[in-house]
Amino acid sequence: MNRSRFLWLIASFVTAAGLVWIWQVVADNRLVNPVFLPGPDRAWMALVRGFTTGDLDVKLLATVERMFWGWLVASLVGVALGAAIGTSPRLRAYLSPMLEFLRPLPASATIPVAIALLGLSDGMVLAVVAFGALWPVLLATVHGFSAVEPRLYEVGRALGLSRAAVIGKIALPSASPDILAGMRLGLTVALILSVVCEMIAGRDGLGTWILLAARSFRAPDLYAGVILLGLLGYATAVAIGLLEARLLVWRSRSR
């Protein structure tokens, strides 16, 4: 079991390394104009240069902060609102048509509205990121809470649990796998929207770094930014994965 997992891990790294190698060969043989496609070596050097002599670390941190705060607000609001809607069939009946209307709206389409209301500010970015990341969390939470085994509610009644205890000890843990899945999606949306907001509203961060590099034909810098975004997305996915493994031990330990 552990052995095969280890082999799979090696296989996936070999695949990744192979793709980087192909990229290097394509760049070295100038199959694509080097103005548009630098090799991984030049992209890597640009990345290192960005951190040592440039201010890429500051920009990375700015993007991470935007993503994190937006995601946190979305998660808190999403879980609270989702719990209220998911536990009340009446609220669900009232609100679901509106939720279904708002949900498919591309969050980036809300940026002009947000700019009109809040200006080109960090508050605007926070609002857009939080709004976009809210939906996956909210819908997953509603689903999680409405799918709680009815028998468990009866157990709660028979034991004389308070309403707060029923939510905290029965409904919330029961919905937690759904909630975590929603928060994982929300984090991806938050990263995308942070970068898009930076690009559109000119807030300093990885988004502007990439945009400016592209406009001045500094391809290695552009790729360095994209690589960094990829790494950031990967790191957040790993972090959520660890959180899930910790909170959902019971799911992996079945007979």
């Binding site: 468990l152 009866e154 028979a158 004389g160 000890k169 843990p173 029961s174 937690s176 019971w250």
Partner: peptide, 17 residues
């Protein structure tokens, strides 16, 4: 609280977490 109920479907009546 002084009346306890044992349900038939123990799989659903226990908290799996």
């Amino acid at each position: 609280r002084d009346v306890a109920i044992v349900f038939q479907d123990y799989g659903k009546a226990l908290l799996p977490w």
